[in-house]
C-alpha cells in the first residue's frame, strides 16, 4: 500500500528536504502534495486525500495552529494524522498542539532518520503493508 503525504511549510527548501527524505527512506509514496500555508493545504485537501500531514507552525496566511484547528473541526479531515515539523521549543505549545490532535512533533533542525521513524510509527513500516 502506498501513501499520500501532504507537506505544509512556507519554506520551499524545507518542503523539498522532507520530500527528499521520504523518497530516500524508501517509503511507499503514491502522491506527495505540498502547500506553503494552512489555507493552501485545506484547498488541496478539498480535492485530495492525505494519509499523513507534515506541518510547520510559523507560516503566513494561515499558521499551523489554525490549520490543525480547522482539520479538527472537519469530520473527515480530523482523522488524518498530523506531524508538527517546527522550530518550536515550547513544551507548553507542543502539548497544546498534541491536545488538538497532532500525533508527533519533530523539531528543526531534524535528522532525516527521524522523519522516517515518525512515518513508520504512525503509518506502519513499509514491510508491514
Amino acid at each position: 500500500m502506498a501513501f499520500n503525504f501532504l507537506i505544509v511549510d512556507d519554506s520551499e527548501t524545507v518542503r523539498a528536504v522532507i520530500a527528499k527524505t521520504l523518497h530516500v527512506a524508501g517509503l511507499p509514496i503514491n502522491e506527495l502534495y505540498q502547500a506553503a500555508n494552512g489555507k493552501d493545504a485545506l484547498d488541496i485537501l478539498a480535492g485530495h486525500w492525505a494519509d499523513l500531514i507534515f506541518t510547520d507552525i510559523n507560516m503566513p496566511v494561515m499558521d499551523g495552529i489554525e490549520f490543525i484547528d480547522r482539520l479538527g473541526a472537519d469530520d473527515m479531515l480530523k482523522s488524518i494524522p498530523v506531524v508538527i515539523v517546527s522550530t518550536e521549543g515550547s513544551q507548553t505549545r507542543i502539548e497544546q498542539l498534541k491536545a488538538k490532535g497532532a500525533v508527533a512533533y519533530v523539531r528543526k533542525p531534524f535528522q532525516p532518520e527521524l522523519i522516517r521513524k515518525v512515518v513508520e510509527e504512525t503509518l506502519g513500516a513499509p514491510n508491514e503493508n
Binding site: S11, E12, T13, N58, M59, P60, T87, S90, T92, K108
Partner: peptide, 30 residues
C-alpha cells in the same frame, strides 16, 4: 534566500528555548 530565511527561523526558535526555557511560549514573525 529561502534557505537563509529558514536558517534564521530555526536559529531563532532554538535560541529562545535556550534563553527562556521550554515552558515559555513565543510568537515569531515570518
Amino acid at each position: 534566500t529561502d534557505s537563509l530565511k529558514e536558517l534564521l527561523n530555526i536559529t531563532c526558535g532554538n535560541i529562545l528555548t535556550e534563553i527562556a526555557g521550554t515552558e515559555a511560549v513565543f510568537t515569531l514573525t515570518i
